[in-house]
């Protein structure tokens, strides 16, 4: 499986993502600096990693979403390549318009950092099929701005179309309808605040994240 991880100034989960992908797929992802304008041909997966791109200046993910690499990312997403935005990457995908809604400051104002139980709200998605019907996973969360908002019509549409992929069991940030992760209409772009790439080895405290990358691998 051919994959790429986009690296923005201030990304800090890019290597975690690369190590997770390499461990699960056996192939090293290409690390793509944000100033590039092209992505490698024939990709099966592109990851927008977690971190604090541009120091979260202006709005989280706002400046990264206007990077030189983003038009190429949008092109690949439109072609159906799997795209995963984790944490800051989720914020970036919302800012690019690839995913609807926005992520605001956590309702409780605190930075939350803990293992988080999640419901797999759509077990048949491109990102969850390998869990084979399992209903719950635990991924770590670590964010200050994870409070998902969208207008009511958008939320209804997300729920109605099975585009809510993960839901918090114990909402840590005030997200509308306990949403932790959503997909685009085509189902090939996933954004989520929790970190599956930080749960791929029992030494991490759990390896529930493996199934997410395994799902993409099996669909590739």
């Amino acid at each position: 499986m051919k994959s790429a991880v986009i690296v923005f100034p201030g990304s800090n989960c890019d290597r975690d993502a690369a190590v997770a992908i390499e461990g699960i797929t056996g192939q090293t992802p290409a690390m793509i600096w944000h100033k590039e304008t092209e992505l490698p041909d024939g990709l099966d997966l592109i990851v927008a990693p977690g971190g604090f791109s541009y120091g979260d200046y202006l709005r989280c993910g706002a400046i990264a979403a206007r990077s030189a690499i983003v038009p190429a990312l949008k092109r690949e997403a439109d072609r159906g390549v799997a795209v995963i935005g984790v944490c800051n990457g989720f914020q970036v995908l919302c800012e690019t318009g690839l995913l609807p809604g926005a992520l605001l400051r956590n309702a409780g104002l605190n930075f939350v950092c803990r293992p988080e139980p999640l419901e797999i709200a759509n077990a048949n998605s491109r990102f969850t099929a390998a869990y084979q019907g399992r209903r719950e996973v635990v991924f770590p969360i670590a964010h200050h701005d994870g409070n998902y908002v969208a207008d009511e019509d958008t939320l209804d549409r997300l729920e109605g179309d099975g585009r809510v992929i993960f839901r918090y069991r114990d909402n840590p940030n005030g997200s509308a309808r306990d949403i932790a992760g959503i997909s685009n209409e085509m189902g090939n772009v996933l954004g989520l605040m929790p970190h599956p790439e930080r749960a791929v080895d029992l030494l991490h405290g759990g390896d529930d994240g493996v199934g997410l990358f395994q799902s993409v691998l099996e669909a590739a």
Binding site: A62, I63, R66, C94, E95, G101, A102, L104, V149, A150
Partner: peptide, 9 residues
């Protein structure tokens, strides 16, 4: 429209 404000919020 292009950067300074996010019309969603």
């Amino acid at each position: 429209r292009k950067l300074l404000a996010n019309p969603v919020i």
